[in-house]
Amino acid sequence: MSAQSGKTNISDAEWQTRVELAACYRLAAHFRFTDLIYTHITARVPGEDGRFLINPYGFRWEEITASSLVKIDVDGNKVSDGPHGVNPAGFTIHSAIHQASHDAAWIMHTHSRAGVAVSTLEKGLLPLNQIALQFYNKVSYHDYEGIALDLGERERLVKSLGNNPALVLRNHGLLTTGSTAGHMFNNMFYLERACEIQVATLSMGLPLQPVPDAVARKVAQQYENSMGEEDDVALEWAAHLRLLDEVHPSYKD
């Protein structure tokens, strides 16, 4: 599929958001976080209260470009001209968190194999390795209520997330938030890696080496002190964009 390239009637701030959001979709496809045409990554439209950008329904994430993204309102309805539709039912989860938290300008939700596998475990993400410790006491959990079509679930989702940057949707998948594209993608990239490592670890069927609580808290704080710095996240995001510029430059169209 394709979309007409261009910036007609789009502000510079919105176009920059579109480019970064398209980059998130392409990166998610590159790292195999996708579920064909389902799930979403969304971003608030700068300067337009209650407006968001989302993927056109039916596009593979490898196909998404800055100009193909669709502008919607808080209920998932299109508010801009264009040939592409959206899946408003799938926006239930995103709309809840976007409306409740000013810091959650960017939201990413995945159904990856490792993420869904970990979401089915009673104890969820385990503090077994250094990458997982980045999220020690910083991951929330939301009990499964069925496919997220019920708008009444939105308040419960927000309550479950609280002030954490990551949410495990039990028996469903993963979700991360961020004030920028870089922060959101950084959270998902490492949450996915932690889940992949956990699945590999448990598959060995051997005794586990636990990390003491005091050490886990220390490592979590070390992560916050380093990756919490804007410069570090910006460097990582710039590295991701260089990758795309080399292998999938059409995301900017």
Rank of each mutant, 00 (worst) to 15 (best):
A23N: 08
C24G: 02
Y25T: 10
A28C: 12
R32Y: 06
F33P: 13
T34N: 13
D35E: 15
D35I: 00
L36Q: 11
Y38F: 12
H40K: 01
I41D: 00
T42N: 10
T42W: 03
A43P: 11
A43T: 14
V45T: 06
V45S: 09
G58V: 00
G58F: 00
R60L: 00
I64Y: 04
A66I: 10
S67G: 00
L69I: 02
L69T: 00
L69Y: 00
K71H: 00
G76L: 01
V79Q: 05
P83F: 06
H84F: 08
H84N: 11
G85H: 04
V86R: 07
N87C: 02
P88C: 05
G90Y: 00
F91V: 11
T92R: 07
I93H: 04
H94Y: 08
S95G: 15
H98R: 06
Q99C: 15
S101P: 07
S101I: 13
D103A: 14
D103N: 09
A104Q: 01
A105L: 05
T110I: 03
H111N: 12
S112P: 09
R113Q: 15
A114Y: 04
A114N: 01
S119Y: 02
S119D: 02
S119W: 04
L121E: 04
L121D: 06
K123D: 09
K123Y: 08
L125K: 08
L125T: 01
L128C: 07
N129C: 05
Q130F: 05
I131C: 01
A132M: 01
Y136C: 00
Y136V: 02
N137Y: 05
K138S: 11
V139C: 14
V139N: 09
V139D: 09
S140I: 03
Y141K: 05
